[in-house]
Design a protein around this nucleic acid. Structure first.
Lengths: 262, 262
DNA sequence: CGCGACGTTGACCTACCTCAATTGGCGTGG
DNA sequence: CCACGCCAATTGAGGTAGGTCAACGTCGCG
């Protein structure tokens, strides 16, 4: 099941209809690089990515920037911003981005209407925190090759919902400059590493697509271990909550067209 | 108010008594370096540090280790482990550690008994996630001097609950080797940086104590900004929930003696 | 007194950074 | 349809922050 389906998987059909109607009603567009939330803002909305990718980031006073997370279609940007008085990080569009912004009042109505919604979002937050920890060890301990390989593995698995066996492809909307900001490297060095990965793993990275002919090999280079994504539990929880709706039925594809198909 | 008081500040007197009785009843001791939770374990308890420090960490297959967070007295180790089937990181004792381990059944009773408890723990989790993001930018973007200075500032502020004006001191239980694992540096280099900080800021670091004669200077070196600790909100929320119990009254000192006073 | 844990020091090395220039694709306007 | 400009990727040369390895000092404790 796709990572972005956490929410959908946990809802009943009725709940899911309210939820998606609300998403559609509150859709907004942003173009590349534009901030949706700036550190220090008073957060006012619940944001769910519809298509394109968002990035969470923080900046030091002199401009150095760290991308903290990427938010894929179907995912929540920030639940914690709903609890907290001031945003502690910024959120921006990776590329052209379509996103639903649900204000407090409407969110409250939705929570009342859909009792399965809050636990679903809460699980998503917990997985998000786990991913954040993995990113910390990524920039803290892995070398450049491992960091870039790890990023590729994660992005692939989060989109497909299962660690790849053999080869496959997925969307990849980050520029090499953005990959550098995510891995704590420079753009130049990321470029050299990507070239190495092309040689060593035959990885293709172009036109906003990532092709991985041999996932096991790439994962080995990165010491990638998908446990931190908690895929099994997400799936189990989803099935327990609404056994009628298999992941295939409530596919992310319904409303997430991706950046390349406008 | 001290960071560890989040929980206490949010509880009424009656709730607080149940809570602390439960803590006392379930206390356990660990000696330095021992794991309380290992990545992959099925988590079975809610853990609250009573005295000493705990560390969350992850390890790569070849042994490289990243400390993800330090858990100070009065703080919760992991709420998310309560939701998730398998721990995605390990937890160990920084030094001799006294900790309360509350099993699922008892935790459930406590949640029923203390309606303010769940929101309190949840706020603590949210702040924890924010700290994790700051650590990511710390290892990803700051240089060695900034990283070590930032770590010192954070540890100080989290213990005292306010950014220091002028000079002051606090417990500091990490060895230089552990500081290295927390900052993504080597022990040797941390040692050299600490020496630099001694020269440039007159920082003292010995006998498990950290003395900071000029906090502003240290904070400037680190580009430290305490916003990510959400101190104001923690305080506000605490006061709203139980206005009768000021932070001074419900002090952490009640049960958290620190490592140095056994 | 001897051992283990921690801090300290020196010499040398390298992974990654910096700066700067070039290339190629693609959308836009003339 | 072509020219221009922008953005992203690429390449090269040279520099440095921090790593590695190995030894030594020091303190506390059994």
């Amino acid at each position: 099941m796709a990572f972005g389906d956490i929410v959908n998987g946990l809802l009943t059909l009725r709940e899911r209809m309210s939820w998606e109607a609300s998403l559609a009603r509150n859709a907004r567009e942003y173009s590349k690089g534009v901030d949706l939330v700036r550190e220090g803002d008073r957060p006012a909305a619940l944001r769910i990515v519809l298509s394109g990718w968002a990035q969470k980031y923080k900046q030091l006073p002199d401009g150095r920037r760290q991308i903290l997370a990427v938010v894929l279609p179907g995912q929540l940007c920030d639940l914690d911003l709903f609890t907290v008085a001031r945003a502690d990080h910024s959120i921006a569009a990776v590329r052209r981005l379509s996103i639903a912004e649900i204000n407090r009042a409407e969110a409250q109505r939705l929570f009342d209407l859909c009792p399965n919604l809050a636990p679903a979002l809460s699980l998503a937050e917990i997985v998000g925190a786990s991913v954040q920890r993995e990113w910390t060890i990524n920039v803290g301990q892995r070398n450049a090759l491992e960091r870039v390989a790890q990023l590729m593995c994660e992005i692939y698995v989060r989109q497909h919902g299962v660690p790849l066996v053999g080869g496959g492809a997925c969307d990849f909307l980050l520029t090499q400059g953005q990959m550098a900001e995510a891995t704590g490297l420079t753009q130049v060095h990321v470029n050299r590493i990507v070239q190495q990965l092309r040689l060593r793993c035959a990885v293709q990275l172009q036109n906003l697509r990532l092709e991985i002919p041999d996932f096991a090999q790439l994962a080995a280079l990165a010491s990638f271990n998908a446990n931190y994504l908690h895929l099994g539990e997400v799936q189990a929880l989803a099935e327990r909550a609404s056994p009628l709706f298999s992941p295939e039925v409530v596919s992310r594809r319904d409303y997430a067209g991706g950046d390349r198909c406008p």
